[in-house]
Design a protein around this nucleic acid. Structure first.
Lengths: 203, 203
DNA sequence: ATAATAAGTGGAGAATTCTCCGATTGCAAC
DNA sequence: GTTGCAATCGGAGAATTCTCCACTTATTAT
């Protein structure tokens, strides 16, 4: 499903060109809803984040929540959106090792490393958002970034496929399983990714 | 969630030691339910496979469906179970290249290749079953197999982690996205996996 | 056979996600 | 101002997933 139904305004990834600006009441509601959702996650955990609970706590109808965020996964994405933008901005125009002034292989490492940081910090929210991962704009941006780096390192490789594969290994659901069920440490996960990269970085 | 609530009988993966055999009426219902579910999938597609529709079509209460299969993902797993067993049997005691008489690297290739076959044939059902992928017995068996092979190839590698990563790349949901949205062919996916393996097989 | 007990059954109902569309409201043009 | 209309809102209700537990039935032990 789309990020936002008729998405306007300065929202989720700004993939759309500048459309008509968001109406004032809509903008106000968006902020109220995000603040409310954020508070629910902080106080009661991601599991307590239901569309109905957010609507009730924010004092709006449930239809409004759906209009704004499309579905539960969309709401979770919206909560992660700010960091997502920072991440992307750092990649596109920030300093090395993530930004464009570093070697592709270095950037790739840095990118995945930062991604693991995000997982460690927001695994539950990411896992929730992942319900419709492949339909999200965020996924496609990440995928493009990775594919580009991989092909800068080695044009012979199938960048888009390998991007999918790497991102699959960085799924929030898998991360949760690895850390809470399988007893893996974050360091082990980082090291594992490094091993996975050997075939890509070292040709 | 568990595969089956108080799972007995010759079901899903036979991970449990021989418990008390399944009661005759329960066995009868299981068969009826699986046949009914199978028919629904064949005639109306995976999307039409709901717990309630299966119960109604089979002429039992919905509670019975839940008792048998735990949840929707469990029902999907049960439908895939027969092939899953064949797959595992071929790995454990079948002929090369999948079985134990082949080189580990060859077995690994064969294993992943067969896995792609399964994806190609049952992607939707696998995607449905994946809802609780990491809680399923099937996943853990696959993971162990792959981890073992990887460590036979190179004991320095983190077999369990790399197994997770490879299986993540073989998710049903990702496969569906790659083939139906991103326009990738099955051959391209196989080739991509081969590239991913370079760091593992070639040390 | 019969009783005791474990296993299995069914379906009402709670909890959620998501849809739909009539009512309402902000906004811009006049 | 007023008016027109597109954007927004709200909440009833449809559709599902899943829980619970009083009731029934199969199996085992006596």
């Amino acid at each position: 499903m789309a990020e936002n139904r008729q998405s306007t305004g300065p929202v989720t990834l700004s993939l759309e060109g500048g459309r008509r600006p968001e109406r004032a009441d809509a903008a106000r509601n968006r902020r109220i809803l995000l603040d409310t959702a954020s508070r629910i996650v902080r106080d009661e955990g991601v599991a307590a984040l239901s569309m109905e609970s957010v609507a009730a706590a924010a004092g709006v109808g449930i239809g409004t929540v759906y209009r704004r965020f499309g579905d539960r996964a969309g709401l979770a994405y919206a909560l992660l959106d700010e960091q997502e933008r920072d991440f992307q901005a750092a990649f596109i125009s920030g300093p090395p090792p993530l930004g464009p002034d570093a070697e592709p292989a270095v950037r790739l490492r840095a990118y995945l490393d930062r991604y693991v940081d995000r997982l460690a910090e927001h695994a539950e929210l990411l896992a929730t958002a992942e319900t419709h991962r492949y339909q999200s704009g965020a996924y496609n941006v990440q995928r493009r970034h990775l594919a580009m780096l991989i092909n800068q390192i080695d044009p012979q490789l199938d960048g888009p496929y390998l991007a999918d594969a790497l991102l699959a290994a960085l799924s929030g659901q898998l991360y949760l399983h690895q850390t809470t069920e399988a007893g893996m440490s974050v360091e082990r996960i980082r090291a594992g990714i490094a091993q996975l990269l050997r075939g890509i970085v070292d040709g």
